[in-house]
Design a protein around this nucleic acid. Structure first.
Lengths: 111, 111
DNA sequence: ATATAATACCTCGTATTGCATAGTACATCC
DNA sequence: GGATGTACTATGCAATACGAGGTATTATAT
């Protein structure tokens, strides 16, 4: 995640982990604000578009947490082939939270 | 911290706490890159200039951690009155880390 | 004079959460 | 049979913000 340099020392590696704890919920809400996605897809998306590598044991509990907080809604979508996908959508409350989070982040980074 | 809105629910409150885990070391290094400061002063500084409220039980262990990582150096400075102040200075390694952190953050927020 | 606030340093325990690891289950494709 | 896609769970560790508490000095208000 967060390409800092090829060789990362322990401190920077740990720092990135800690930073993720705050950024992941934001990234997920932001990604789902653009369009609905399923868990497995989100993992790929964060990797490709946010430079952020997340394991399944991080993503699935996170999605469940956000859904329990009512920031996300999910719907099982049957596929013509393969296992059904659990698509997540952002809720109105989720959008409000995302806006609040965006503000908080801008407050701290733009200036 | 991070003025989001007057009334914060549990989720946002908790999210801010998690976000701090990544941002605080960055803020501290950034603040000390500008000039030396002592712990108590840093708490005020983060509040005034970073919109970030931190308690003493967060700041003091953080400074100790950064100092043990050799990103900071400290010097006790006697005062004409009152308790001596423990002034912290950023080290060369600290400056390098700050640059790396800055890069990582820009990677994720500018795009 | 005395209380209290502010300044200045600190420690300990708890809760949160990413993540490593290790599973389960099923489908598809080569 | 093995790789990839898709969903999930459980356990335990590591890191850290924070509440609560402590100590000491000085300034201010009652």
């Amino acid at each position: 995640m967060l390409y800092i340099c090829r060789v990362k020392n322990e401190f920077l590696k740990n720092w990135e982990t800690q930073l993720k704890k705050g950024l992941l919920p934001y990234f997920v809400l932001k990604a789902l604000d653009a369009r609905e996605r399923y868990g497995y897809e989100l993992i790929q998306h964060l990797k490709d578009d946010f430079n952020t590598e997340v394991t399944e044991s991080t993503m699935y509990p996170l999605l469940t947490r956000l859904q329990k907080e009512e920031l996300l809604i999910y719907k099982w979508i049957e596929q013509p082939t393969g296992i059904p996908r659990k698509y997540y959508y952002i809720s109105e409350e989720g959008r409000a939270h995302l806006a609040a989070m965006k503000n908080a982040i801008n407050e701290n980074f733009i200036k």
